[in-house]
Nucleic acid binder design. Structure first.
Length: 334
DNA sequence: CATCCACCGGAATCACGGGTTG
DNA sequence: CAACCCGTGATTCCGGTGGATG
């Protein structure tokens, strides 16, 4: 049933952006100096997930490539490359300066040096999930690097700056802020329409059903697309030509579960054990959790490490915490 | 009310593996 | 070859917090 799977992928960047014109224009304006070979303004895109932050950042950068002959750009997901070293390494990759940086054992700040020594075309850098960066001082360092134009993406701007000293944030505070709100039902329908047109056969799904999806996912475009994919797969499994309401009702929770499942799959064995314990209990106080974890594994990690795992899993949206200090309990997300 | 202590999370330090250097 | 460097995960140590206890 799926004609073109690519357009239903969350990382697909459409040729035309519907809505978000204000955001696109603001970002384009901030990057405008790059067309004159000058460093652009640092921008900060923030808002809930599935509101088009990454998509717009990539879209505007691609447009820039079309208008400017000489331009480098690189996308870094700080969730995957969360250490200072990995982030810097990716940035060097983007300008092919990694040779001789044999991963490790190079003098301590060789990477940043190299980045700063670079004198070439303007370099536009998208740092996604930037709040996941463990050492945020690297932002300050990058912000001070000439000819580097930063696009920072985060869920909440507050969380990003909280752990930073005021001294470090001052330079970043001047960044152009672009806030992304949740899509309304109508907006999300308009976003899904062209994807359906390219990705699915004609008449596979009606507009009223797109509305159904948009409401079910509360304006989260990523989950909305996932529902479309899951729904299309279901329909073809059942040999149907169209996606029915019933399939959508069915697919909505399934889509969310699949997104979570992908995160579960990248957990380590110890993290997985913790995850299983919490899902089995539904809700469990810390001491019981630590104890049961130790029972279930031959070579348990320290409690401190368990806490690291748990906070990581919380950021992955795999577990939820309730209460502070002594009253804390860990919950599964249902 | 004072004390206790379960819990969190920052910081310093260690251990290890992969890499280079001399 | 040994000696050394580096990043990363893990451990150890510990101060802060605030509900529970007497």
């Amino acid at each position: 049933m799926i004609r073109d799977a690519r357009v239903l992928q969350p990382e697909f960047v459409p040729r035309d952006i519907v809505h978000r014109t204000h955001e696109v224009n603001t970002l384009t304006a901030a990057l405008e100096p790059v067309t004159n070979d000058i460093q652009g303004e640092t921008t900060l895109l923030y808002g809930p997930s599935g509101t088009g932050k990454t998509c717009i950042a990539r879209y505007v950068t691609e447009q820039l490539h079309e208008g400017v002959l000489d331009l480098n750009s690189q996308y870094v997901n700080c969730w995957e490359d969360y250490s200072r070293f990995k982030t810097l390494y990716r940035l060097l990759e983007g300008i092919n300066r990694t040779m001789n940086v044999h991963r490790q054992s190079t003098p301590k700040d060789e990477l940043l040096e190299r980045l700063r020594d670079y004198e070439g075309a303007p370099y536009v850098v998208i740092l996604d999930e930037v709040d996941q960066l463990e050492d945020k001082r690297v932002l300050y360092e990058l912000n001070r690097t000439k000819d580097l134009t930063l696009i920072l993406i985060a869920n909440e701007e507050q969380e990003l700056f909280e752990p930073l000293q005021p001294r470090l944030t001052s330079r970043l505070q001047t960044a152009t802020r672009i806030e992304f709100d949740r899509y309304t039902t109508d907006e999300l329908v308009e976003i899904l329409k062209p994807r359906v047109r390219w990705g699915l056969p004609e008449d596979a799904i009606r507009v009223t059903q797109l509305e159904l999806i948009s409401e079910a996912v509360a304006g989260d475009a990523r989950v909305g697309l996932e529902v479309l994919r899951v729904g299309a797969r279901r329909a073809s499994q059942r040999g149907l030509e169209t996606i029915s309401d019933e399939i959508i009702y069915d697919a909505a929770p399934k889509a969310k579960a699949e997104i979570r499942q992908r995160n579960v799959e990248i957990l380590t064995t110890d993290q997985r054990i913790l995850y299983d314990i919490i899902t089995e209990h539904g809700k469990i106080p810390p001491s019981d959790l630590y104890k049961e974890y130790r029972d279930r594994t031959d070579d348990p990690k320290s409690d401190r490490m368990v806490r690291n795992y748990l906070s990581k899993m919380e950021r992955y949206n795999l577990v939820r915490t309730e209460g502070e200090n002594r009253g804390r309990t860990y919950h599964s997300v249902s």
